[in-house]
Write a protein that binds this DNA or RNA. Sequence first.
DNA 1: CATTGTGAACGGGTTCACAGCA
DNA 2: TGCTGTGAACCCGTTCACAATG
Lengths: 207, 207
Amino acid sequence: MKLEPIPDIVVSRLPRYLQSLQRMHQAGQLTTSSQDLSSKIGISAAQIRKDFSQFGEFGKQGTGYSIPFLIEQLEAILKVNLVWEIALVGIGDLGHAIARYQGFTNQGFKISAVFDNDPARIGTKIGDFVVQDSAQMIPIIQRMGIKVAMLTVPASAAQGVAETLVNAGVTAILNYAPVVLNLPPGIRVEYIDPIIQLQHMTFYLQS
Amino acid sequence: MKLEPIPDIVVSRLPRYLQSLQRMHQAGQLTTSSQDLSSKIGISAAQIRKDFSQFGEFGKQGTGYSIPFLIEQLEAILKVNLVWEIALVGIGDLGHAIARYQGFTNQGFKISAVFDNDPARIGTKIGDFVVQDSAQMIPIIQRMGIKVAMLTVPASAAQGVAETLVNAGVTAILNYAPVVLNLPPGIRVEYIDPIIQLQHMTFYLQS
DNA sequence: CATTGTGAACGGGTTCACAGCA
DNA sequence: TGCTGTGAACCCGTTCACAATG
């Protein structure tokens, strides 16, 4: 096991491994190999072995990896063996859909507060949540100790709301707004932008 | 200008450049520099210059780049100076939100057909679209010549639906289902999976 | 004088290939 | 024999630094 810092690109592949292992586990499979995983997620077997070896020796020569053991290790490494509360900001169509999505549970996440600045929406119920006034984000997020947020506000509002979230103590933001956020060092941001990804693909299509 | 194949990683940055340039353009800005772009999207200036230089000499020493000209070039490179029709499959909460999203127009895309396999949803209207039976996908997509699809079906259905889409002639899929798709070479797939991205960030958080 | 375009240097991620072990 | 773990080789993307130029 290496004690050197883990390359971010390695970290970025771990959730995929975990996802695939969980699926195999649900299907009743008990062991796997780097080859088996490779065929399922399209990452080379050598790459997979090298990635795991960054964290320890998880496998057995000749037999491969124990799926439950590997899941446990990956969940611990990614810190999703505990539950992170999430603040969801922006309750338009997309925010609605996310608030109602059941897929976060058992993956280490739980939406715990939803915010919007539209008086017509504040106080309404979405699933189990009451939409709260985004003017109250700082005290509420601070009191709850929330560190992770999902941002589904219009592009024009995203930078400002993100700054407020950071002031409230959030350090990780999943940004659905089509803008690059400019935030202090140490704040993690990930982007979800379908247009960016569609345009990436059209480069390769013949018109 | 290089005539060698463009690295995919370069292509993946072009949509971000375009997005940022469009924003500057809307704000009335007429020229920019690699330095200016760098500060806005957090990619090094040298990187930006090198990326552009793969396609030609777009700038002028001393003055930088013309924003309208650069937009035009990037739109042509990404082939989004024309409109790609999109098939949207899976009309749950997320599919609904996407169908109603106005942001695709003027970015090279237009949702042209929406499908679901739930009899309760087939025939209902979502925005301007009538939900069609996914059993009819192949003839409809073929007739319309659709090449791009967005997949918002449950994980368990995604692989099968994706295969059907490929049989119908689709060659680019934006997959929102939390599974890796296994498709023939030549088919482009991009993934949108919030849990993967959240778990990437939690690695860096302190618990 | 500011800024581009680019060859060269650098750094680091991926693949290779094989020793080691169940 | 089958498969892991890993050093070394390889490859490729990024940064550097500067000549070129409007």
